[in-house]
Every structure is written in C-alpha cells, then in structure tokens.
C-alpha cells in the first residue's frame, strides 16, 4: 500500500464534491423538520430527482435543465407525502417510508432504458486567478456550479431562519403548531410549502449524484445517501452550519475510504465501504446526548378542531 499516493489537495477537492449531494438534501430536510414535519422519504425523492434530472439532461443535452427537472420531480413526489400527512393525517413515519419504497420503484421503472448512457458533462466553474492558487485553487475554486450552490444554500437557509419573518413563522409552526394556528398562521399551507422545498432539494441532491458525481444511471444508485441526509439533520441539531460540517465529515470519510481502496490497503473493500454508515451511527450516538435543537412539534400531526 502506498499512502503517499493520496494527494491531500485532490482529497479535499473531492471531499467538496462528495459532500454536495448529501448537503443539499439535508438542508431541504432541515427546513421540513423546522416546520415540524418528519419526512423519511428523502431517499425516495433523491432517487426520483436523480432519474428525472438524468432523463431531461440526456434528452435536452443541458445539465442545467436536468437540475431544474430534478428539483421539480422531487417536489412533485413530495406532494404525495404532503397530501398523505397534511390532509389525510396519516402517520408521518409510515408515509415517509412509503415515499421511499415508491420512489425507488418509480425511478427504476423510469430509468430502465437509460442504463449505461453517459449524461452531458457539466462545465466546471474555473474561477480565473483563484483557481490557479496553489492548493486552495484546487480545493475551493475549481468545482462545478452545484458545489457553490450548495454552499450558498447553507448560507441562505441560515439567514432565512435567523433573520427573516417567514423563517420565524416557519419555526413557530414547527415548535408549537397549535399556538401558530391560534395566531392565524396557515399551519398546513406553510408545512406543505416546506415539504415541497425539501422535495426539490432532495431532487437536486439526487441529480448531483447521477449527473456529476457518478455520472450515469444505475438502479438504487443513491445507496442510502438520503438516509444519511436525515441523520445529518439530527447530527446538526437542526442548525444549517452544522449540516455543512456533517456533510464534510461524511464526504471526507467516503472519499478517504475510496482513496484507501484505490491505494490497495490490506482491508477488503467491503469493510471499507461500511465506514460511512458506521461513522454516521457513531455520530448519531454522540449527538443523542443533545436533544435541545429538535423542533417541539416534530412528527406530530396537526388537526385544527372546529
């Protein structure tokens, strides 16, 4: 084995890429959970977004249109969840699971004739001057647009929740939906919008995997990233910046184990592939000591009595 073959600049650069999908999906779920809704269907929405984006990008030749379609596809699927939990008042855990099972099947059905095709490649946003910087140029300034979009999304979500009136209302709905209802806020409407935002983000995250990260289509290709996104939200105690930290941690572990596999370490590849999931469990355990951040109405059904 040759550890020195692992270049730290390349490692950090690919960490940024590896963390983007889970980052975008987790930020979406963060907003959903801040509104008091637990949507366990992230994996299903991600994979649906992945195939929607893939199909549109391949057909139109434009990755950008692909991402738009992915966001749309994820949001449409999330409406199913919204109808189930907000109008039919179904259990959120079960509905989220249903969404994941359905999304996995639907994406497999949609993607049958797209296996083995290469999508149009996305342009790298090589920032002039900055990308020529030693080390940092490679790590920070020579990525595709979505990497920066993900970072901007974190900042925007943080600002939205902290400084905007709408963000405050969203949090009020998540903390105590009865009080928010009494104040005249439309709890159901706000929650549906949050759920759709979460769906769009999950779709984008999924498309990032199928269009840039891998890039091709295979059944079930998200491989649990949606679930890891859910875990990240818990890890982050519902704080956007800590989602970013968690995404980097996850991306770092993923990239490192792939590099170790490539470097020919003596541990079989299967055991190394377990590491992102095991680290996620470990992190969940450590974070379970801190329950302060969870929205108080999380997962509870709201039904306005007459």
């Amino acid at each position: 084995m040759d550890i020195s073959a692992i270049n730290p600049a390349l490692l950090l650069a690919s960490l940024m890429v590896a963390s983007t999908a889970v980052l975008i999906a987790a930020i979406g779920e963060l907003i959903v959970e801040k509104a008091g809704v637990l949507n366990l269907g992230v994996e299903g929405m991600m994979i649906t977004g992945a195939i929607c984006g893939f199909i549109v990008a391949v057909t139109t030749g434009s990755p950008l249109l692909g991402f738009v379609a992915a966001a749309f596809g994820g949001a449409v699927l999330s409406i199913l969840f919204a109808v189930l939990t907000q109008f039919a008042l179904a259990n959120q855990v079960a509905s989220g699971l249903a969404l994941t099972l359905f999304g996995l099947g639907l994406s497999a059905l949609m993607g049958q004739s797209y296996v083995g095709i290469k999508p149009p490649s996305s342009a790298k946003l090589d920032l002039p001057v900055l990308s020529d910087l030693p080390f940092f140029g490679k790590v920070l300034f020579s990525h595709d647009l979505m990497v920066y979009f993900g970072l901007a999304l974190v900042a925007a979500t943080w600002a939205f929740l902290k400084y905007s009136r709408a963000g405050l209302i969203l949090k009020a709905v998540g903390e105590n939906h009865d009080a928010a209802h009494a104040l005249g806020y439309k709890v159901i409407r706000i929650r549906i919008m949050a759920i759709m935002f979460g769906g769009a983000c999950a779709g984008l995250g999924g498309a990032y995997i199928s269009l840039i990260r891998v890039p091709q289509w295979t059944e079930g290709m998200t491989g649990g990233v949606g679930w890891i996104a859910l875990a990240l939200v818990v890890f982050a105690s519902w704080k956007p910046w800590r989602v970013l930290l968690g995404a980097w941690l996850f991306g770092g572990v993923t990239v490192l184990q792939l590099n170790l596999q490539a470097a020919g370490i003596a541990i079989p590849a299967e055991y190394l592939s377990m590491s992102p999931y095991l680290i996620t469990i470990l992190v969940l355990v450590i974070m379970s000591f801190d329950r302060s951040g969870a929205p108080a109405s999380l997962g509870r059904t709201f039904h306005a009595s007459q």
Binding site: A88, L89, N91, S95, A98, G103, L104, G105, A108, L109
Partner: peptide
C-alpha cells in the same frame, strides 16, 4: 420495477384510506 411501484402504491393508498 412496475411491481415495485405497485407495492409502493399499495402502502400509499392504505395510509390514505386510513383517514
């Protein structure tokens, strides 16, 4: 995959009619 979609739909409708 059509069967998988079918099974997923079943759970959806089940939860929906439970209302």
């Amino acid at each position: 995959a059509a069967i998988q979609v079918f099974q997923g739909m079943l759970l959806f409708f089940l939860l929906a009619v439970d209302v």
